[in-house]
């Protein structure tokens, strides 16, 4: 599979160092469109720092080594607002002063007002949230907030989706529900996605990327 599809996102010999000390071993990852890779590792192994570095929001105290390539473009020197990478956290970070539609519109590119509103409505309907446009985000349930947050990120038309433990705040039933929603969105957007998690159920195909070993691993313990 991987050989036939073109590679969209790539980390080449990528490493983060803090005060000269490597946070994790040198890693190389390749992702195709619509592919989801789950990165796991013990807490403190630098999972979130990895995502922050890819998104461009990591601090100046980290030294970056290697290359980050998205659709043939080197990203390391670009500021985060020009990388076209979406990042979703366990906190939904919905803007509290805007209603649901406002939150979504903020992410939509400029254009015809009617068309933009139409995209918002379509997106909400796809998430089972039709008619929620004027709702105050503070009145949404946890699961609804998570959906709106993901929809918002995707409306910005990112070329890569980063997910930083997106399900850990949700209870078990909601988690399964939202997980399916995320997978289907990634598939329909046809973009690569990188997810940091410590829940084994998040892994598609029963495999994940072990950050501290810098290699793919099976859930049953074997190596790929």
């Amino acid at each position: 599979m991987r050989q036939t599809n073109p590679i969209v996102f790539e980390l080449q010999k990528f490493q983060l160092r803090l005060d000269g000390v490597a946070v994790f071993p040198e890693i190389s990852i390749q992702l195709t469109a619509g592919e989801l890779l789950v990165v796991m590792g013990p807490s403190g192994c630098g999972k979130s720092s990895l995502l922050a570095a890819i998104a461009g929001s990591s601090g100046s105290e980290f030294e970056l080594y290697g290359k980050v390539i998205l659709q043939g473009r080197q990203l390391c020197d670009l500021p985060m607002e020009r990388r076209q990478i979406a990042i979703v956290y366990q906190d939904d970070l919905l803007f509290p002063h805007l209603d649901v539609a406002g939150n979504l519109l903020f992410a939509l590119a400029r254009g015809n007002a009617q068309e933009r509103m139409h995209s918002v409505k379509r997106a909400l309907a796809s998430a089972g949230l039709a008619g929620f446009e004027k709702r105050d985000v503070a009145t949404l349930s946890g699961g609804q907030r998570a959906r709106v947050s993901l929809l918002r990120s995707l409306l910005a038309k990112p070329k890569l989706l980063l997910l930083d433990e997106p399900f850990s705040r949700l209870d078990a039933a909601l988690r399964q529900d939202f997980r399916q929603f995320v997978y289907s969105q990634i598939e329909s957007m046809n973009i690569p996605a990188l997810m940091v998690s410590h829940d084994r159920q998040d892994c598609p195909n029963s495999q994940f990327y072990a950050l501290q070993d810098a290699q793919m691993q099976m859930l049953n313990g074997g190596y790929v």
Binding site: E81, Q84, I85, L93, F95
Partner: peptide, 20 residues
């Protein structure tokens, strides 16, 4: 992270600062 999220979404520091 609100500011970062806004910058990623809107691709504009200015807009993120003033609107978020």
């Amino acid at each position: 992270r609100f500011m970062q999220q806004a910058m990623i979404l809107s691709q504009s520091r200015w807009k993120s600062f003033w609107m978020i």
